[in-house]
Computed example of a mutant assay.
Amino acid sequence: RGHWTADRGRVACDHSRRRTRSTPTAAGSTMRPPYRRLSLLATALLVATALPSSTAARWPDAGDRASAVVTLFAAGVTTAAIAAAEGCTVRRVQQIVAEAGMQPPALPLHPQFEAVVQYEMLRHGPNYGFNMLLGALLSHWPSWRWPRERVVAEMRRVDPVAYEARRQWATRRIQRGVYFAPHFFYSLHIDLACKIQEYHVYCAAAQDGCTRAIIGLTALSDKMPITVYEQFFEPIARVHGLPDQVVTDKGNEWRLLAFACFLAARLAQRLGGRLPHRFTSSQHNVSAAASLST
Score class of each variant (00 low, 15 high):
Arg1Met: 15
Gly2Trp: 15
Gly2Asp: 13
His3Cys: 13
Ala12Cys: 09
Ala12Ser: 09
Ala12Leu: 12
Pro24Phe: 06
Thr25Cys: 10
Ala26Ile: 10
Thr30Phe: 15
Thr30Asp: 04
Arg32Gly: 00
Arg32Glu: 02
Pro33His: 10
Pro34Ile: 06
Leu38Gly: 06
Ser39Val: 09
Leu40Tyr: 04
Leu40Asp: 14
Ala44Asp: 08
Ala44Arg: 12
Leu46Ile: 05
Leu46Gln: 09
Val47Met: 08
Ser54Phe: 03
Thr55Asn: 14
Thr55Phe: 10
Thr55Gly: 12
Asp61Glu: 05
Ala62Thr: 08
Asp64Glu: 15
Asp64Tyr: 05
Arg65Gln: 09
Arg65Thr: 11
Ala66Cys: 13
Ala68Val: 06
Val69Met: 14
Val69Asn: 12
Thr71Phe: 15
Thr71Asn: 15
Ala74Arg: 06
Gly76Arg: 00
Val77His: 08
Thr78Leu: 13
Thr79Leu: 02
Gly87Lys: 00
Cys88Ile: 15
Arg92Pro: 00
Val93Trp: 09
Ile96Lys: 07
Ile96Asn: 05
Ala100Tyr: 01
Met102Cys: 03
Leu107Phe: 11
Pro111Tyr: 09
Pro111Gly: 10
Phe113Asn: 04
Glu120Cys: 11
Leu122His: 10
Arg123Phe: 15
His124Lys: 01
Asn131Ser: 03
Leu138Glu: 15
Ser139Cys: 13
Trp141Leu: 02
Trp141His: 14
Pro142Met: 00
Ser143Tyr: 00
Trp144Gln: 14
Arg150Leu: 11
Val151Phe: 09
Met155His: 04
Arg157Cys: 15
Ala162Gln: 12
Glu164Tyr: 14
Trp169Asp: 00
Trp169Ser: 07
Trp169Asn: 08
Arg172Trp: 01
Arg173Gly: 02
Arg173Asn: 02
Ile174Tyr: 00
Arg176Cys: 00
Tyr179Thr: 00
Phe180Asn: 04
Ala181Ser: 08
Pro182Leu: 13
His183Gln: 05
His183Thr: 09
Tyr186Ser: 12
Tyr186Glu: 04
Ser187Thr: 04
Ser187Asn: 04
Leu188Ile: 01
Leu188Ser: 02
His189Gln: 03
Ile190Cys: 08
Leu192Asp: 04
Leu192Trp: 04
Cys194Trp: 01
Cys194Pro: 03
Ile196Ser: 05
His200Cys: 12
Val201Ile: 07
Tyr202Lys: 00
Cys203Ala: 02
Ala205Ser: 14
Ala205Gly: 11
Ala205Ile: 12
Ala205Met: 14
Thr211Asp: 12
Arg212Lys: 10
Val228Arg: 02
Glu230Ser: 11
Arg238Phe: 09
His240Asn: 14
Asp244Ser: 04
Glu253His: 02
Cys261Gln: 05
Phe262His: 14
Leu263Glu: 07
Ala264Arg: 06
Ala265Pro: 02
Gly272Ile: 01
Arg278Tyr: 11
Phe279Leu: 15
Ser281Thr: 10
Ser281Met: 13
Asn285Glu: 09
Val286Thr: 07
Ser287Val: 10
Ala288Ser: 14
Ala290Lys: 04
Leu292Glu: 07
Ser293Ile: 03
